[in-house]
Design a protein around this nucleic acid. Structure first.
Lengths: 224, 224
DNA sequence: GCGCAGCTTATTGTATACAAATGCCATTCG
DNA sequence: CGAATGGCATTTGTATACAATAAGCTGCGC
């Protein structure tokens, strides 16, 4: 992460996710270069990458703008994600090893612990959640699938609302994970896929509801 | 297409697809720059793009190699493609306009014509086939889905065999297209998705068979 | 006042020089 | 003899200068 181009990438990406760079606004290579403390060369690299990831879009004359997603676009992303993660779960059910299953159980236990106590640790929950899903992708053993999912997973974060988390939703995630583990135990790919698809779609509805009703209190839950 | 970076991109991509750059071989920015008649800067741009499209992969120390796909990898790609095109067909069934349907019919008629006469014109068939599928993507109206499909569609061409086409397979494609049109007429998304998925998977098996049995006579059919 | 031509300025594209990192090979030490 | 180490060669990363292109503006003609 110490190479200038990586720093620039992370910096710009964070600025987009945090809303520091407003959706729809134009971004110029030189000013980004200044902000990141590097020259234009690594900034251009980063912009191309972010463009491929659809965080940035370019008009017909090559000028760059921060992507501006509607709720429909986000539903689209979630729908794709539900399908792809369902597919991953199905593949994983056929291939998963005992060791991977054990690691998933550990992550799910820790994720439960993170929100079980008196003061819930949501970031810790999200971290274990991420790892839980990562193991499934590892078991699915399709590089292509992984890279596609990466594209579609981090997009919704773009809506930069105050992130307050609905604990009930997080608990549900935990239970859905348990059902997923049961499906894996039985090597039942269709079951796993169905649970996973439902899991992601529930997450979308929690997300959409939180954003449509009260954006200030913003009970956002991106956990799936 | 006149910008140096676009020329470099197309040039390198063609060299990969034609087999001029051997799968697995290392590629150096400077030699590519010479081959393309540009400096390293646009070449680097192209390499990043081709890397995102998985035509090129890089090792842990940033050196680039031409991707080398196994048959399993290609089946993986086809599987993803079947799923995504099925999804696209389902979405399209809900949204497609009369005009788009009419255009699809025209493409399908012309594609039939291309292989109907005494000397079949396979490239022409493939062109109309491409347009037929493009209209579905247009009707599906999901930019994300389109860009993902693009990634997964052009990969199999990497295996550079003598391209002789099995007319029977092409005729089947034509008939499957007709069934797809029926599904669209009835606005039946599930039907459309099922037909499309079968369509792509048949194409994969035709492809796989052609490559496993006789690679020299190579009855390859990428048409779907 | 409106629209267009031509100029000016802003922004991106390309080439090149140099810096940093990595691989490779030879040499040395255990 | 094998493994580790040091230095040289190769390759990629970064900065910067300059070229090309697109946008915006000004003033002219109508």
């Amino acid at each position: 992460m110490s190479r200038a181009s990586d720093r620039a990438y992370n910096h710009i990406r964070n600025m987009i996710l945090s809303g520091e760079l407003q959706p729809g606004s134009q971004i110029r290579e030189e000013s980004l270069a200044e902000l990141c403390g590097v020259s234009r060369t690594p900034v251009r690299d980063s912009l191309r990458r972010l463009e491929a990831e659809m965080f940035i879009r370019r008009n017909d004359s090559q000028r760059s703008f921060v992507a501006d997603w509607s709720l429909d676009d986000l539903e689209d992303a979630f729908q794709l994600r539900a399908m792809l993660e369902g597919h991953a779960a199905k593949r994983a059910a056929r291939r998963i090893t005992r060791d991977q299953l054990a690691r998933m159980r550990i992550q799910n236990a820790q994720l439960k612990q993170a929100i079980g106590g008196a003061n819930p640790d949501v970031p810790r929950f999200l971290d274990h959640n991420r790892q839980f899903h990562a193991i499934i992708l590892e078991a699915a053993a399709s590089e292509r699938l992984s890279s596609m999912l990466l594209q579609v997973t981090e997009q919704p974060v773009v809506l930069r609302t105050a992130r307050q988390y609905d604990l009930e939703n997080l608990r549900r995630s935990h239970h859905e994970h348990e059902e997923l583990l049961n499906a894996f135990d039985n090597r039942d790919g269709d079951w796993a896929a169905a649970v996973m698809t439902a899991h992601i779609r529930r997450a979308f509805h929690a997300y959409a509801e939180a954003h449509s009703t009260d954006t200030e209190i913003g009970k956002t839950n991106l956990a799936a």
